[in-house]
Nucleic acid binder design. Sequence first.
DNA 1: CTTACCATGTAAGGCGTTACATGATTCA
DNA 2: TGAATCATGTAACGCCTTACATGGTAAG
Lengths: 178, 178
Amino acid sequence: MATEKKLDCVILGLLSHEELTGYEIKKRMDTALKYFWGASYGSIYPTLSDLVSRGLATKKESTENKRNKQIYTITDKGHKYLKQWLALPVEKDELRYETLLKLFFGNDVGPLQTIEHITAFQDKIEKEIPYLLEAEKALKNCLNDDATHKYYLLTVEFGIKTYHAYLEWCKEAKEFLL
Amino acid sequence: MATEKKLDCVILGLLSHEELTGYEIKKRMDTALKYFWGASYGSIYPTLSDLVSRGLATKKESTENKRNKQIYTITDKGHKYLKQWLALPVEKDELRYETLLKLFFGNDVGPLQTIEHITAFQDKIEKEIPYLLEAEKALKNCLNDDATHKYYLLTVEFGIKTYHAYLEWCKEAKEFLL
DNA sequence: CTTACCATGTAAGGCGTTACATGATTCA
DNA sequence: TGAATCATGTAACGCCTTACATGGTAAG
């Protein structure tokens, strides 16, 4: 019954359209998935081994050069498992914003310090937006190449939309506190 | 260096304006804080004991009736600790939306199933909005009573704004997929 | 020649959940 | 009298991160 682990499904999802190494999986986590899902090497590599032992993926050594490179491929069983999980209703969407926490207790330290937290948040968001817009542009330009791009684009649009809402809120919140 | 635990600060923040029992703390987590921070009894009670052993809070037994009720109060040291934490920059704001994950891999199961996930998400958000609006109204009506309400209101406004952005996205996303 | 990136993995330990276990009180 | 809510806590376990440990390759 315990909180179901999702990382195996995430990895299978990534493997479902290309063979990947653990390192490459991590890169995708840090780019395409970073806005809504994260993972470290310390969880990726063990999960990969687990996937192989459960027969949901296979592992092969790279042949092209000396480099110690393990390439993972999804199996039919893995595809099935992934599809089953995708069909299940979503269990949990969780947001954990320390900024809001510090804001909530803002009265203990006064408006100036709170405004600083809001400004830091604002800066962080403003720096992320260009990447999202770039991704949006790139994805729109190759929508016909690969149907998966369509879904990727939707997550980017989600990010753009919410980030703009965040910025609007930052502006209003600061005005309210001054 | 390990991920700093935040629950102690959250509890101190709640205790900073009123004495509370573990049960009451949990209630606040499930209402005012639920949109950006969660915690279970299994983490609240041990943290409370820990707070007492570190001298950041004190515990006293309820005198009013037979009920086994432990009331926690913040100490001066606790106030100092809380303020120090509030002054520190935010370490991490994290969003973990399984909905976006399933969306990202939507190509593996097609648009219809993806639309179902979006609809479920939409329903969930639509059901939450009335509570946020109610809280907004109540807080606006008593802004002068207690300065802490001002900060609470800001977190509610954040919720309202982002939830509206979510709904807009849901609508557009579904149109895009059809 | 050294910095950055490619590449894999383990160990220790933190954090938090779920399930369990218990019992009082209030209200219909 | 039964359901809901009040009320506290522990035990087992799962998940994940950080830090550690190691080494190859490419580019400037």
